[in-house]
């Protein structure tokens, strides 16, 4: 099968980790790694791996539109709005890693296949990738949900400056994803950064207020969903079976990363990137079918 040509826009933690993952994929070929500063750690890493680099930002793709079929945008929510206008005209398929909320929200465990008809998908947030499959499951199998809440703690060192500056966008985008996929109108998201050394793994708790939860059935369904997520995020696991404490239905999960660019504790970075790679591979298979 012919590999899909992908470009990565943004040379921070997300972009550089995506690069390592893309290079490993049997379906993807990273043809361009684009940032702003040739001396940044991400650029150095990319050129060390023999990948073509550019410091021209989006202009690099405007100048050579044939260099790629798919673009991962790992810049910022604000920049993404401008980038999409350009990439749309060029007919590119775009996977948006920022919390811009403009493309179709994509959670591979739920809607990978449906998303393949769109050329523009948004990977929501790391907390969204971790929690929304469980929220969706609860909404689908446990009857009407009154309220849903997701709390994630991440290691401080795992979030770069753009992520930290955009904490409000993180919260609001995750909440929108929760509402959309669970069908519950009231959703809340909390993000905690923990500076402890050694660094803590990403941990997410989904709290649900619901009339009469069926814990046994949910435990089975949750295991099945975790299995599905594990196919693209190997370090995703339940901390304990779903439980009820103080009137709250709770599901706790931990995510360990693959340790590609950032260490294993950065499960938050890993999960959104693994989800994006799963999506890109989906497009690669689809393109191969169409051209076959």
């Amino acid at each position: 099968m012919k590999k899909l040509k992908v470009a990565i826009l943004g040379s921070g933690n997300i972009g550089t980790d995506l690069l390592v993952k893309a290079l490993r994929s049997p379906y993807l070929e990273c043809t361009f790694f684009i940032g702003r500063n040739l001396l940044s750690p991400g650029m150095t890493k990319a050129s060390g791996l023999g990948v073509r680099i550019s410091s021209l930002g989006i202009e690099a793709i405007e100048k050579e539109p044939e260099s790629c079929d798919l673009v991962f945008d790992a810049t910022s929510a604000m920049d993404h709005k401008r980038h999409w206008q350009i990439l749309d005209k060029l007919g590119k398929t775009v996977i948006d890693m920022t919390p811009s909320k403009i493309g179709r929200m994509c959670i591979p465990a739920i809607n990978l296949e449906e998303c393949l008809v769109d050329r523009h998908v948004n990977m929501v947030t790391c907390g969204g990738q971790a929690s929304i499959p469980l929220a969706y499951l609860i909404g689908k199998t446990q009857g009407p949900v009154e309220y849903i809440e997701v709390v994630s703690s991440i290691a401080s060192r795992s979030s770069g400056p753009a992520t930290r500056l955009n904490i409000d966008e993180y919260v609001e985008t995750t909440e929108e994803g929760l509402r959309f996929f669970s069908g519950c109108e009231r959703a809340k998201t909390i993000l905690i950064q923990n500076p402890a050394v050694p660094c803590v793994d990403m941990q997410t708790t989904v709290f649900v207020r619901i009339k009469s939860p069926d814990l046994e059935a949910l435990a089975v369904e949750a295991e099945r969903m975790v299995g599905k997520i594990k196919t693209y995020v190997p370090g995703y696991r339940l901390v304990a079976p779903p439980l009820v404490e103080n009137g709250r239905l709770m599901i706790m999960i931990k995510v360990q990363g693959l340790g590609d660019y950032l260490p294993k504790y950065a499960g938050n970075l890993d999960i959104i990137n693994c989800a994006a790679i799963a999506m890109a591979e989906g497009y690669a298979r689809r393109f191969a079918e169409v051209s076959a």
Partner: peptide
């Protein structure tokens, strides 16, 4: 080394 807000832990 939990911090404020990590009550789930």
């Amino acid at each position: 080394k939990v911090v404020a807000g990590q009550e789930d832990l």
